[in-house]
Amino acid sequence: MNDAFPDSDPGVVARRAASFGKSAAAYARQRPDYPDAAVRWALEPVAGRAPLRVLDLAAGTGKLTEVLLRIGLDPSDIIAVEPDTAMLGELRRRFPSVRALEGRAEAIPLDDGAVDAVLAGQAMHWFDLDRALPEIHRVLAPGGVLAGLWNRDDDRVPWVAEMGRLSRNTASFGEWRPRELPKTAHFPAFERADFAHAHRRTADSMVATIGTQSHMLILDEPERETVVNRLLGYLRATPETAEGEFDLPLITLAARALRCT
């Protein structure tokens, strides 16, 4: 998913960042989750803590929360924080046993040292890191871990690259990595790892997934319809995607850093 390469124009970035709420239900249905292995890697530095308290920051509709539950965390040990009320409502509907709060990375509604890990799925590139990193440091317990995860279409695969071009998404897997995370006194070093992933799709559901990406959400309706029709035509004519279900190859990029005391 290619939202992690925002336009350089601050106004466009702001529109893209605020665009998801109007498609919250579609986002929940259509977006991929994250590989269990990537989430376990993110939590590895604190895996021995019991209970293991995890904050899903900028949680959206709960794609990462879903994986945390799947790998065995107790719902009472997960807190989800999300600024968009529509996305938050969808998360609460899907995971009523998880504590879900309205809040931002730059103003987290938790006490000091409240969690052992802060995870952000498909989100850290939207943060104001100068404000968010000190705030994340504040809510982390000593020795806690901060980790970001991003799903990226693997456009080393030719048909995936062409699909990206037709969707007018110019982010390139070959050029893109998680935004350069600054070395700070709070988080002096980030480790990185990549994980193979896939999303089972059809031509129609693939286009629906692309429709939940921020570069599509801010288009006016005639332009959006033009892109959708172009993509459907391409996918229905391409051997790898023309008949029934197929796997969209993804790479999940992960970065983690320990809280410096």
Results as ranks from 00 to 15, higher is better:
181 L>T: 03
201 R>W: 10
215 H>P: 00
152 R>V: 09
182 P>M: 02
181 L>R: 03
181 L>D: 09
159 W>C: 12
153 D>F: 13
184 T>W: 00
179 R>P: 07
209 T>M: 10
144 G>I: 03
200 R>W: 07
156 R>M: 01
143 G>R: 06
134 P>F: 11
221 E>W: 00
161 A>I: 00
173 F>C: 01
161 A>H: 10
206 M>C: 15
199 H>E: 13
137 H>T: 10
211 G>W: 01
183 K>F: 01
175 E>Y: 01
180 E>M: 01
135 E>N: 04
197 H>C: 08
215 H>M: 12
219 L>A: 04
194 D>A: 13
217 L>V: 03
211 G>I: 05
194 D>C: 07
163 M>F: 06
162 E>I: 01
144 G>P: 07
156 R>E: 12
204 D>M: 08
198 A>P: 04
173 F>L: 14
172 S>Y: 01
144 G>S: 08
140 L>S: 08
219 L>Y: 02
176 W>Q: 04
164 G>N: 15
134 P>V: 09
160 V>N: 07
135 E>I: 05
223 E>K: 14
153 D>V: 13
200 R>S: 13
179 R>Q: 11
158 P>Y: 04
196 A>N: 11
185 A>N: 05
197 H>E: 03
207 V>T: 06
195 F>K: 13
164 G>Q: 10
147 A>S: 15
150 W>I: 13
155 D>G: 09
154 D>K: 11
222 P>Y: 00
195 F>C: 11
141 A>S: 14
202 T>R: 11
186 H>T: 09
157 V>K: 11
163 M>W: 09
222 P>R: 02
140 L>A: 05
152 R>W: 14
152 R>H: 14
197 H>V: 04
195 F>Q: 14
166 L>N: 13
175 E>S: 13
172 S>M: 03
136 I>Y: 06
154 D>L: 10
179 R>V: 06
147 A>I: 11
193 A>M: 13
136 I>K: 00
181 L>Y: 03
176 W>L: 00
182 P>K: 05
171 A>P: 04
206 M>L: 12
175 E>F: 02
165 R>C: 05
193 A>C: 14
220 D>A: 02
184 T>L: 05
174 G>K: 11
175 E>N: 02
197 H>G: 06
192 R>S: 15
138 R>D: 04
184 T>F: 02
135 E>R: 02
135 E>Y: 02
216 M>V: 07
219 L>W: 01
160 V>R: 02
208 A>L: 02
137 H>C: 10
219 L>N: 03
202 T>A: 06
193 A>T: 07
161 A>T: 04
187 F>M: 13
221 E>D: 15
194 D>K: 07
201 R>S: 14
139 V>C: 05
203 A>F: 01
170 T>G: 08
190 F>K: 08
155 D>M: 08
143 G>W: 04
222 P>Q: 03
219 L>F: 02
191 E>R: 09
170 T>S: 12
164 G>I: 01
177 R>Y: 02
188 P>S: 09
222 P>M: 05
144 G>Y: 03
223 E>I: 01
139 V>K: 12
210 I>L: 14
144 G>N: 05
212 T>P: 04
174 G>M: 07
163 M>R: 06
153 D>P: 02
